[in-house]
Design a binder for these strands. Sequence first.
DNA 1: TGGTTAATTAACCATTTGGTAAATTAATGG
DNA 2: CCATTAATTTACCAAATGGTTAATTAACCA
Lengths: 109, 109
Amino acid sequence: MKDQLSATFSALADPTRRAILARLAKGEANVSDLAKPFLKDMSLPAITKHLKVLENAGLIQKTKDAQWRTCSLNGAPLREAADWVDQYRRFWEERFDRLDEYLRELQAQ
Amino acid sequence: MKDQLSATFSALADPTRRAILARLAKGEANVSDLAKPFLKDMSLPAITKHLKVLENAGLIQKTKDAQWRTCSLNGAPLREAADWVDQYRRFWEERFDRLDEYLRELQAQ
DNA sequence: TGGTTAATTAACCATTTGGTAAATTAATGG
DNA sequence: CCATTAATTTACCAAATGGTTAATTAACCA
């Protein structure tokens, strides 16, 4: 078993799964609804597998409703991911610091 | 070729690679230095491969210095990842909203 | 030149991943 | 009861991943 953070990042490392999460952010949906936009590109079992990956990572949960499975988003694991990435914020803001510095130098002249 | 965001998340989905980034956040280091903490668990070529994954994702770069390769962190790709994850913030803050709501209801009584 | 150090490459292997088609399960409803 | 709908499971496959050992490249230095 992978650690939670690895499972989260690994689940997010696929555009289909990210699109599914984006859809679920707008509200609950069953498997067929979720699959619809992708059925030109892949089969229903492929979607079932993607959902299983998301479920195992704790990013979604399914509830049984007659023959439908209603899926909903669980953002909790994303918090850990957000916190981890945020540690490195200064490494992408650095360039702005440098730009600032450059502009200040320019001003000083 | 994978899209940038998938490549980033995929590179982050491994504890060894995350540890390497954490190390590089403290400053540049060559391959041997980076490898040292992991050599009980895996070989040097394994580290070379991890570094290649990080490099392909644009998260690090190597500069040649005699027989050493100096690696440094590039946070830029993390920005896109941070932005993506941040879209879902309300889904992990929701619980606090619900707690707020509950507390307000309690107060109203 | 030849030995040492740093790192990568090559060849290989097992497991995981992401897909398929076909079969199966489970519930609905006429 | 039977056809239909929703979804999963099974069995399979190719490619990617993450590791290994052994060989190779490249630079330094005595």
